[in-house]
């Protein structure tokens, strides 16, 4: 991209949120929610999970886990490293998921694109019963309300996904999403679809 970056020097934080905090028995099934995987393929389960209740409970840590490794559209680092997504800014209850994203700078023109990437990731990875709301963390963006409205318009989201150029950028950001943290030796963190 030839255009000047919105934020040339973002602060990059070390990922502090250990992948091991994920509840292991559920990770196998959680990974199966990846769009590429067949979510109904019982035989792919690690153990005798047929007896498990059909409806999997999901908590904010698992949602964070789905989002943390998405790559920033401007920099080759993850949204977790930029602290654009934070475990404390995700709420889950019943069928509701609420994600606050924190742009690195208040005039970041990439916020809509990042929000779109989060939405697409959750659309593909969460069971369809979840209704997802995405908000800019209050006070962190000059056009907070306008961006919020756009990110939550399903028609605009669908149209964006049919825009080849935009979709390519989103897919680029999502290419790393399956890493779910870092390759820190935790076998469970490797995407099974790779």
């Amino acid at each position: 991209m030839s255009r000047a970056l919105d934020n040339e020097n973002p602060t990059i934080f070390a990922p502090t949120h250990a992948t091991s905090s994920r509840r292991q028995p559920k990770s196998a099934r959680a990974l199966l929610w990846d769009s590429e995987a067949d979510m109904f393929q019982e035989s792919d389960m690690e153990d005798g999970s047929e007896s498990e209740e059909e409806r999997e409970e999901i908590d904010s840590e698992e949602v964070f886990d789905l989002l943390r490794s998405i790559t920033d559209p401007e920099h080759p680092v993850s949204l977790e490293q930029l602290r654009v997504v934070n475990p404390d800014d995700i709420r889950v209850a019943g069928n509701r998921v609420l994600v606050y994203l924190t742009p690195t700078i208040p005039h970041c023109s990439m916020s809509t694109l990042i929000g779109l990437s989060l939405r697409v990731r959750l659309l593909r990875a969460l069971p369809p019963r979840f209704r997802v709301d995405i908000r800019i963390k209050p006070g962190t963006h000059q056009s907070e309300h306008a961006v919020n409205k756009q990110l939550n318009d399903k028609e605009r989201v669908q149209a964006a996904l049919e825009n080849k150029h935009l979709l390519q950028v989103v897919e680029g950001c999502l290419a790393t999403a399956g890493q779910r943290g870092v390759g820190d030796g935790n076998v469970g963190a490797a995407p099974i679809t790779a």
């Binding site: 209850a93 209050p138 907070e144 409205k149």
Partner: peptide
């Protein structure tokens, strides 16, 4: 009951701009 509980636990802030 479940919806009510979810509504209490996760309060989704309304969009501030005038509604579509």
């Amino acid at each position: 009951d479940e919806e009510r509980e979810a509504e209490e636990k996760v309060v989704v802030p309304p969009l501030e701009e005038d509604e579509t």
